[in-house]
Amino acid sequence: MEYKDYYQTLGVDREASAEDIKKAYRKMVRKYHPDVSKLKDADAKTKEINEAYEVLGDATKRAAYDALGRGHRPGESFQPPPDWGEQFDFAGAGAEDFFADLFAQAGRRAGHRGGAGAGGRNGDFQMRGDDIHAAITIDLRDAYQGATRTVSLRVPRRQAQGRTVMEEKTLSVNIPRGVTPGQQLRLAGQGHEGHGGAGAGDLYLEIQFAPAPRYRVEGANVVENVPVTPWEAALGGSVSVQTPSGTVEVTVPAGSQSGRKLRLKGRGIPASPPGDLYLILDVVLPPANNDKARALYQAMARDLAFNPRPA
């Protein structure tokens, strides 16, 4: 029989949540329904979509499909291992779809071999559990200091009776100092459970940073906007700046303009190698909201005769 990639049919990845699969299914049905679609193959396409959702929309069927179909390509010929269907409760699957055929073949092969009865397992088939990929959001300060965070995941778990149920798993995760956006943390053995006594897969958590009004993260480098007064920018001087690693004294060169970039080497995320901290100067004008302030601005206009828009 030929392997069908139901994830590809619905246009979702293998780690998609149940809600994402449902949304994708509804979107595809609206697009290809024969009543609205003008495509010649709308009927066939709708049937494929319904078949894919019948499997991926059911936690038990999806767990079996993931475990058995891993590593196969669409259209590739393959055979299910003996007694595989006995590990799952798949009653009610449509008699004509790929999923029912798959289990039917497993059952026929087990019968020819004199396999175990319902609920039994042939110990000669083993498969390592699938890995889980998820994201974890941390604060920038966590990357500087390290932290411990708690994550909760819903994963399928096979009961002793052979049924697969969704179970919430809570884990304590150590965030090491120096992590950067997109980096993945691996938690060995915390993925989907294996089959036939094989080991569980791993959990991979991709690091994401929560938005921070004052900072922007670019790899291991950090960019910070620093407001300065007109006289600090014009005359130069030392200003105190609050950075993710603490307060530092920074020298503003005389004659600085808004947008000037100052580099603090090694003050970025303490990765390997450590990143840099870039300070972008932002000249902020005091408001002319009283007589004295307006008089000072008028004196500057008169005495400096400065024109920022030369001809």
Rank of each mutant, 00 (worst) to 15 (best):
Ile175Ser: 06
Val217Lys: 04
Asp101Thr: 13
Lys38Gln: 15
Ala135Cys: 08
Tyr7His: 10
Ser172Ile: 05
Arg158Tyr: 00
Phe88His: 08
Thr247Arg: 12
Ala118Ile: 12
Glu232Tyr: 01
Ile132Met: 09
Ile136Leu: 15
Ala67Asp: 07
Ile207Asp: 04
Ala18Glu: 13
Lys31His: 12
Met166Cys: 06
Gly259Pro: 12
Glu54Ile: 00
Val55Gly: 03
Ala234Glu: 14
Gln105Pro: 00
Gly119Tyr: 02
Arg214Ile: 02
Ser238Trp: 11
Phe306Val: 09
Arg186Tyr: 06
Ile280Thr: 06
Leu205Thr: 09
Asp43Ile: 09
Arg157Gly: 08
Val173Leu: 09
Thr229Glu: 03
Gly259Tyr: 00
Ser245Leu: 10
Val151Met: 13
His112Gln: 13
Leu187Pro: 06
Gly120Glu: 10
Gly182Asp: 09
Met166Trp: 00
Pro230Arg: 07
Arg294Cys: 07
Ile138Ser: 01
Ala91Phe: 10
Ala106Pro: 03
Gly246Pro: 02
Ser152Trp: 03
Ala42Val: 07
Leu39Arg: 07
Thr9Ile: 15
Asp276Tyr: 01
Leu279Trp: 14
Phe99Lys: 01
Thr137Glu: 12
Ala18Asp: 15
Pro213Cys: 05
Asp43Tyr: 13
Gly246Cys: 10
Asp131Tyr: 04
Ala16Gly: 07
Pro156Trp: 13
Gln161Val: 10
Ala91Met: 02
Asn289Ala: 04
Val223Thr: 02
Pro81Met: 04
Pro74His: 09
Thr180His: 10
Arg216Gln: 12
Asp13Pro: 03
Arg177Phe: 04
Ala299His: 14
Lys4Asp: 01
Ala288Cys: 09
Pro74Trp: 06
Ala100Tyr: 15
Arg141Ala: 12
Leu203Arg: 13
Tyr6Ala: 00
Gly255Pro: 06
His33Lys: 09
Arg113Ser: 15
Ala198Arg: 06
Ala288Arg: 14
Glu167Leu: 12
Arg154Phe: 06
Arg186Thr: 08
Ala198Asp: 15
Arg141Phe: 06
Thr170Lys: 12
Gln159Val: 01
Ser152Arg: 09
Ala93Lys: 01
Tyr144Trp: 14
Asp5Gly: 07
Phe306Asn: 11
His112Thr: 11
Arg263Asp: 05
Val55Lys: 00
Ala305Thr: 03
Arg109Lys: 11
Asn122Met: 05
Ile280Met: 05
Gln190Trp: 02
Pro81Ile: 04
Lys27Phe: 08
Gln257His: 07
Ala212Cys: 03
Arg149Pro: 06
Lys23Asp: 11
Gly268Cys: 06
Gln145Trp: 03
His133Tyr: 15
Phe103His: 14
Ala305Gln: 14
Tyr215Ile: 02
Thr46Asp: 02
Thr60Glu: 13
Ile49Glu: 01
Arg141Gly: 07
Gly119Asp: 14
Asn289Met: 08
Leu285Asp: 10
Val283Glu: 01
Glu48Pro: 00
Ile138Asp: 13
Gly219Lys: 06
Ala16Asn: 03
Gly71Ser: 10
Thr170Glu: 11
Asp43Trp: 04
Ala91Lys: 04
Arg113Tyr: 09
Lys31Ala: 08
Glu15Trp: 01
Lys22Tyr: 08
Gly85Ile: 11
Asp124Pro: 00
Arg141Asn: 05
Tyr278Lys: 01
Gln105Ile: 13
Ala188Asn: 12
Arg302Val: 01
Gly268Trp: 00
Pro176Glu: 09
Val223Phe: 13
